[in-house]
Design a protein around this nucleic acid. Structure first.
Lengths: 348, 348
DNA sequence: ATACCTACTGGAAGCGTTTCCATTTCATGA
DNA sequence: TCATGAAATGGAAACGCTTCCAGTAGGTAT
């Protein structure tokens, strides 16, 4: 089988190449009869248009790049699922760039891949791109959407991490807690991904506003995983003497780690220790975790939809036209405060 | 900036297009001087070759497709990380097809995407492709590697699930357990992904070989998540009367769900209930989970390396040559029995 | 019947590379 | 000095589509 080309289809259908192309891609100015003829011939030959030839000729790729710092953690895999589903349904390919913890990869991804005119658009998750980098992308007319990270000049979907962290802390304060600890992200995670610092700032703001001291030894850090936070929380909770009565963890995974550590010490949650998280991890339900639910998957889906919209709008020859979405929108994604039973009034 | 093309580079360097192309792609038969000239000119102009034009002309895509049924579960995200890292380092793109639980997507992915000549190779994770589907891919000279699923005719990386499940069960039997329960995967997961059934068969084989009865009510199913297994295990452990003394879960995530459920009932692990899992989930350490460690990430990396190798071997114009890797290898990936402290001699 | 407009159609020019092939250059040994 | 082959070079033909543009048919109004 010599992989039928459009020429073969045209011959078989008794039409010209041009007409077949129009017919198969659903363009106007094709008679119903021709269209049907073309489709039938294409089916019979099992014709599938060559992606590269079509992209080269039309300038459209039907391919969106997704840049993530990791794929293992709940937040990222949720976003990927959301993006992936939406894109697949729209007939778009998803090219995944998992830049991981290696910064040199990040550079090569931006240069060697993203700029290679092979992507129609880019979704960057929790990645802080420099203005130069953003401009580079915009210069070649590639719309960008950032999720969970501030992208100057590009459209963004995010939640107000500072405010929500503050809300979470205030929930604990409101219950009467004064001895509140915080589990934040590790320093290196703060590099491309300022989130831990922002949530921590929210925590500190709430504490200060309430006139509560922040004990440095009660601010510990972990790597955003359950097991990492478990280890950190064990240190935090080790000595009965200087033990907090509540913990605000910067993610649900870390909150769960704290709950597990607490259980190991025979501490009951919430009677002996209140724990509040942030994210909306599915596993939170098992632990009755009080948290602020953000629909990461939904955020991914929304980002994809936004991109598809601007792509459809700017249709034909994106290289040429004016930059799509001159207006960079900054949407705040809705969240939900989910009170379950990992937080309560302190027993003392 | 009009996005410099190779023509511009050639003009600037005072060379022909052909020589520039050879120089930049590191081909032979280019003088050192010309090569340097070309590189300098390319740098100055910020030239990046057009992916589509280059693929169209050369027939090589530098793009590997990865088909997964999900991205959220530990096993899959681990594999994706492994594949992703290896591919990125080799300068390949990764196109992710998350077919999810919707079978219609699977079909469209195979037809509309994979066959569109845009992929050099395909890695299918835990997906059972029909022989027709495999032949379709092989017919257009696209090497396939399957991970964790049997792909007749294609290369495969897998672990011997049946034997390992048997080993896990034998570990419990060897400790003296007779009342052994099994948490398997749900029926619908068994469709494209026979794994739950295979592990279950291993369990049954071990039990039968030991002359132990399998109590149907002690074989429960869950969706491979912690929370799902937690719910199932609660049912399993609810009545003190007919309670097993050991549980073999078909995945670490489900084993952890069982441990959490046991704790809720005040059962101590391993004194009151032994739990063994399978996979090597990072979280297993926190729970002291005895398991069989399979390096999912390593499997992904290996699959990518295998593919890259055959691609490099078959170099130039893969469309034309003989099918790469006529020899479909079926490798068994090494595993490690990890005895921690979630299993012990039954206390009765 | 003629003019005119519209809906279709097909030829052919790109899209931006890679690579074949013929040609030129250059070093080497006789 | 000249033949000889290897190394380097450039022209031009693909690669397989999309789309512009000119042209053809077929219908309507005059």
């Amino acid at each position: 089988m010599g992989l039928a080309g459009i020429k073969d289809v045209a011959d078989r259908a008794g039409l010209s190449i041009a007409t077949v192309s129009r017919a198969l891609s659903g363009k106007a100015n094709v008679s119903a009869k021709s269209r049907q003829l073309a489709k039938a011939a294409a089916d019979e030959l099992g014709f599938v248009p060559s992606y590269h030839a079509s992209s080269l000729a039309s300038g459209r790729n039907h391919n969106v790049g997704l840049v993530v710092p990791s794929i293992h953690r709940w937040y990222f895999s949720s976003v990927v699922e959301g993006v992936s589903g939406t894109l697949l349904d729209a007939g778009y390919d998803l090219t995944l760039y998992n830049v991981g913890d290696r910064p040199e990869r990040r550079h090569s991804v931006l240069n060697d891949f993203l700029l290679r005119k092979r992507l129609d658009a880019v979704i960057a998750v929790a990645l802080v791109l420099s203005e130069t980098e953003i401009n580079q992308l915009l210069a070649i007319h590639r719309p960008i959407v950032g999720i969970g990270g501030a992208l100057a000049g590009a459209s963004t979907i995010r939640i107000d991490d500072a405010r929500l962290a503050r809300t979470a802390t205030e929930h604990l304060l409101g219950l009467g807690h004064t001895r509140i600890a915080h589990i934040t992200g590790e320093a290196e995670l703060n590099q491309d991904f300022k989130l831990p610092g922002i949530r921590r700032a929210g925590f500190e703001a709430a504490m200060q506003a309430a006139g509560r001291a922040i004990r440095p030894e009660w601010v510990v850090s972990a790597d955003f995983t359950i097991q990492g936070a478990y280890a950190s929380a064990r240190h935090l909770l080790a000595s009965a003497a200087g033990r907090p009565t509540a913990v605000f963890a910067a993610s649900d995974e870390m909150a769960i780690g704290a709950i597990l550590a607490a259980r190991d010490f025979g501490l009951r949650v919430p009677q002996d220790l209140s724990v509040i998280g942030m994210d909306g991890h599915e596993l939170g339900e098992v632990f009755g975790l009080t948290t602020i639910n953000q629909d990461a998957r939904g955020q991914g889906a929304l980002a994809a939809r936004m991109l598809l919209e601007t792509l459809d709008a700017g249709a034909k020859r994106p290289d040429k036209g004016t930059p799509p979405s001159a207006a960079a929108t900054d949407r705040e994604y809705p969240t939900e405060f989910l009170v379950r039973n990992s937080t309560a009034v302190p027993s003392t």
